[in-house]
C-alpha cells in the first residue's frame, strides 16, 4: 500500500506549518523523513495517520483517502506518535491487549500476538510492570509494539529510536528493515546515520517544503557539484596560507580543520578542480604540502547545506 501525499498544506492559525508538499512512499520502501525541528515532519505524519485534517490537499493510503475513509486507513496503519504517549497506569500486557482489541484482532489470537510482540520488542522481563515504571528505552519498545501489533501494511514512525541505547537501536533498525521489505515505512529521525543505515530513500523537509528527495547517494552527488579536498601545508604561517588559498581562482571557500593549525578544507568552485593550483601555490611559495585528500560530503553536510540559509 502506497502513501500518496498530494499538495498537502497545513496551517496552525496564521502560521503555515507545511506548505504544499507532494510525495509518494511505495510498498516495500523505507523512507526517512529528515528536517530541522519545526520543519513540518510531525505535522505531515499526523495528517497521514488521520489525526490532523489538512488545510488543503489530499493524502491517500492505498486507495483510501483520509477525508472519507479515515477509519479504513487507521486499520492498515501502525503509528508511533511523537514522544510516544502511553497510559502510564496500565501494565504492558493490559495496554497491548487494549490496542489489540481496538484493532479487532480475533479474541483467540490476541494473547499469542501479544506474546509475539513482547518477544520481538524485548519486553519479556517487563511485561507485567506498569508502563509508568519503565525506563525510556522500554517505553519506546512498548510504543513500537503497539504500532506493530496488528501487523500493519503501512508503518508511520515518528522518531522510533529516540531514547534507545546503541544495542537497541541496532535491533530496532534491523526490525524496521525486515518489516520494510514487504511493507510501506515512513520514519522520521534526527539521527542522520540512522536514516542512512535504514532507509532506501530520504526526504528532507525544511520550513514546510520538501528540499530534497532521493537515495543517500543521489543526495550526496547532488550537493557535490563541487570538489572538496583536505590539505595540510607545513612550514608556513597559517593565516598567510589561508589568505593565499582563498585568493586562488578555482577556490570557492577555505576553512580551518578543527584541531589543526595548518590543516585546511578547500571547496572548489563548481565544475572546477583546485588541486593543481594548490600544488603550484605551495611550490611557488616553498611551502611543504604533506597531505591532500579529496573527500565526499557526509549526509550531515548535505543536510546543513539544504536547511541553513
Amino acid at each position: 500500500m502506497d502513501i500518496i501525499v498530494e499538495n498537502f498544506s497545513k496551517n496552525y492559525g496564521p502560521q503555515r506549518a507545511v506548505d504544499n508538499i507532494s510525495f509518494t512512499v511505495r510498498t516495500g520502501e523505507i523512507v526517512g523523513f529528515l528536517g530541522p525541528n519545526g520543519a513540518g515532519k510531525t505535522t505531515t505524519m499526523k495528517a497521514i495517520t488521520t489525526f490532523l485534517e489538512p488545510t488543503s490537499g489530499n493524502i491517500r493510503v492505498g486507495h483510501f483517502s483520509i477525508f472519507n475513509q479515515g477509519e479504513e486507513i487507521r486499520k492498515v496503519i501502525g503509528y508511533l506518535p511523537e514522544n510516544n504517549p502511553l497510559y502510564t497506569d496500565m501494565t504492558v500486557i493490559d495496554y497491548l491487549e487494549f490496542i489489540a482489541r481496538l484493532h479487532s484482532i480475533p479474541k483467540e489470537h490476541i494473547f499469542q500476538r501479544i506474546l509475539e510482540m513482547v518477544a520481538i520488542c524485548g519486553l519479556e522481563g517487563e511485561k507485567h510492570k506498569k508502563i509508568g515504571e519503565l525506563s525510556k528505552g522500554y517505553r519506546q519498545r512498548v510504543g513500537l509494539a503497539q504500532a506493530l501489533i496488528h501487523d500493519p501494511q503501512v508503518l508511520v514512525l515518528d522518531e522510533p529510536t529516540s531514547g534507545l541505547d546503541p544495542n537497541q537501536i541496532i535491533e530496532i533498525r534491523d526490525l524496521i528493515r525486515r518489516i520494510g521489505k514487504e511493507k510501506t515505512v515512513l520514519l522520521s529521525s534526527h539521527i542522520l546515520a540512522e536514516v542512512e543505515a535504514t532507509c532506501d530513500r530520504i526526504l528532507i523537509i525544511d520550513k514546510g517544503k520538501i528540499v530534497a528527495d532521493g537515495t543517500t547517494d543521489e543526495l550526496r552527488r547532488r550537493s557535490q557539484g563541487s570538489e572538496m579536498v583536505k590539505v595540510t601545508i607545513e612550514d608556513a604561517e597559517p593565516n598567510e596560507v589561508y589568505q593565499a588559498l582563498s585568493e586562488l581562482e578555482t577556490v570557492e571557500t577555505v576553512s580551518f580543520r578543527t584541531g589543526m593549525d595548518n590543516g585546511f578544507e578547500v571547496q572548489s568552485k563548481a565544475e572546477m578542480s583546485s588541486k593543481r593550483d594548490i600544488f603550484l601555490l605551495c611550490k611557488g611559495k616553498g611551502w611543504i604540502l604533506t597531505e591532500m585528500t579529496p573527500f565526499t560530503a557526509s549526509l550531515e553536510d548535505v543536510f546543513r547545506e539544504l536547511t541553513t540559509h
Binding site: K46, F51, E71, R74, Y79, P81, N83, P85, L86, I99
Partner: peptide
C-alpha cells in the same frame, strides 16, 4: 496532556 489521545484517535475507532 499525555498525548494518548493521538494514539487513541488514530486507531480504527470513531
Amino acid at each position: 496532556k499525555s498525548g494518548t489521545i493521538e494514539t487513541l484517535l488514530t486507531k480504527p475507532i470513531s
